[in-house]
Structure formats: structure tokens, C-alpha cells
């Protein structure tokens, strides 16, 4: 099989603000993924190349990068699905630590702001709920926290607003849709979470390696929950009438 030319963005901001592309020639073996090629470079050409990885099975979400401009998991992208010249960049929404390794710790700060699962009061343990009520939120629990959706989101990447980002909306939707959870987090998303910044261009949904329908099933339902209490006076009135004890 032919060799493939791989261009990788190299930098180490702690030492220098300069960056450069370095090109490597990697022999292709059938079934090889991009992460294999990066490992080949590390082991045989340049051991100083930094890459974060863990499972190599698209489960841990560590090896996120931009392959030919598209945010992807390196371990899930086969070389034969790409051309003979490949460019790999670190995910651009976050500061680079070294080469392909980025600092995604701001996501952990956002995660701390989200109220955790809070069951309704007075429920007897063990909690019981029906399968029919959890099927919707199950989809969101497949999230592997690769932050590709955060990376591709233009609100975070280009505009740095206070929007939490799609990954966190997925987390919030999973909690809000839970049948025995007692908190409505759409209020938080409306104000602190900045969900109004999202203009539903569906890039997050396009790049999700777990194929979570982020926009259709998490973001838009959360936006509609915001509409329920902030933009729908008739709906609010009907709810008040229903709750009132005549």
C-alpha cells in the first residue's frame, strides 16, 4: 500500500507562541485509523509529538482532533476514508497544551454550575420508574465527552459568549427529561447558560461520533421549555388556571 502524507500542527504555547505544520510520511496498513498513524509517527519518526488518547475504541472521547478541518475522533476515522494527504489540527475552540493536546478544563467548570440529579421529595427508595419514561434521556447518556460538539459550535469557537455549549445542553436535557427529577434547568439555560445564543445550525449534531441528535432532541426541546415559561403568556395562563384550586 502507498504511504500517506500527514501534516500535523505542532506547537507548545508554554515555551513559544510560534507554531508550524510538520509533514510525515506514514506507510498505510489496511484497517488503519488516523490514531494508528499518529502512533506510528510517535514511535518511529518523532517521539516528541504529543497526543491524548486512551481506549482507541471511540469510548473515552480523548483523541478529538480536526482532521482535514472536520472535528472527528482520530480512533474512529479510517485512513482509507481520507485522501493521500491529511491535515490534523488540535480542536481549535480550546487552548493548546502541546501539539494535538488541548486544555478542555473549562467544561468541568461549566459542569459544576449544573444542578445535579435531584429526586422528587417523598419518593420511597429504591426509586421506581417506567422504561417508557427513560427512553428519551437514554440517548443522551451515550455522550462520551469528546467535546467535538463544543469545538464545532461557532458560539464557543468564534464568539466566546456565555453559552454553556451543546455538550452541556445534552447533560441538562438528560436530567430535565428524567421522570423523577424535580428541577427545571431551562431557567438556568435561559439566563446563565445563554441558550439564546445557539442558532441551531446543527453542526454539533453533524459531528457527534455517538450520533446523538443533539439539536433536535436536546437543544430544541430545551429552547421550547424556555418558551413555555418566558415567551408563551397564554401557556403560562393555562398552567396557572389548571393549578388553581377552585
Amino acid at each position: 500500500m502507498e504511504d500517506v502524507k500527514i501534516k500535523i500542527r505542532r506547537s507548545e504555547p508554554a515555551l513559544s507562541s510560534e507554531w508550524r505544520y510538520e509533514e510525515y510520511s506514514v506507510p498505510v496498513v489496511e484497517g488503519m485509523v488516523v490514531l494508528d498513524a499518529v502512533h506510528y509517527i510517535q514511535n518511529n519518526i518523532d517521539p516528541t509529538l504529543a497526543v491524548r488518547w486512551n481506549c482507541k475504541a471511540a469510548r473515552c472521547g480523548s483523541c478529538s482532533a480536526e482532521i482535514d478541518g472536520k472535528p472527528k475522533l482520530m480512533c474512529k476515522t479510517r485512513l482509507d476514508s481520507l485522501g493521500s494527504k491529511i491535515t490534523i489540527n488540535p480542536i481549535k475552540a480550546y487552548p493548546v497544551v502541546k501539539d494535538l493536546v488541548t486544555d478542555v478544563s473549562q467544561n468541568y467548570e461549566i459542569a459544576k454550575k449544573i444542578p445535579p440529579f435531584t429526586p422528587k421529595q417523598g419518593l420511597q427508595e429504591p426509586w421506581k420508574f417506567m422504561q417508557i419514561d427513560v427512553t428519551r434521556s437514554k440517548e443522551f447518556r451515550t455522550c462520551i465527552e469528546c467535546f467535538l460538539c463544543q469545538d464545532v459550535c461557532h458560539v464557543i469557537r468564534e464568539h466566546q459568549s456565555n453559552y454553556y455549549g451543546p455538550k452541556h445542553v445534552v447533560k441538562i436535557a438528560a436530567l430535565d427529561l428524567h421522570p423523577i427529577d424535580s428541577i427545571d434547568r431551562s431557567e438556568l439555560m435561559h439566563h446563565d447558560g445563554g441558550l439564546g445564543y445557539c442558532d441551531i445550525t446543527k453542526c454539533c449534531q453533524n459531528v457527534c461520533p455517538e450520533e446523538i441528535r443533539i439539536t433536535d432532541n436536546a437543544i430544541i426541546p430545551e429552547k421550547e421549555r424556555i418558551v413555555d415559561h418566558a415567551y408563551d403568556p397564554i401557556g403560562v395562563l393555562i398552567k396557572k388556571i389548571k393549578k388553581r384550586k377552585w
Binding site: 480536526e66 482535514d68 478541518g69 472536520k70 472535528p71 489540527n89 481549535k92 464545532v152 461557532h154 458560539v155 469557537r157 468564534e158 464568539h159 466566546q160 459568549s161 453559552y163 439564546g196 445564543y197 445557539c198 442558532d199 445550525t201 453542526c203 453533524n206 459531528v207
Partner: peptide, 16 residues
């Protein structure tokens, strides 16, 4: 969604 053809920019105003 792909870098290079996004045509979005930090300098462009945005309020979503």
C-alpha cells in the same frame, strides 16, 4: 461546520 469554509469570525457581531 468544516474549518476553512466556516466564514464566521470573532470580529463579526453576533447575538444569536
Amino acid at each position: 461546520c468544516i474549518d476553512g469554509i466556516r466564514f464566521d469570525d470573532k470580529r463579526k457581531g453576533y447575538s444569536g
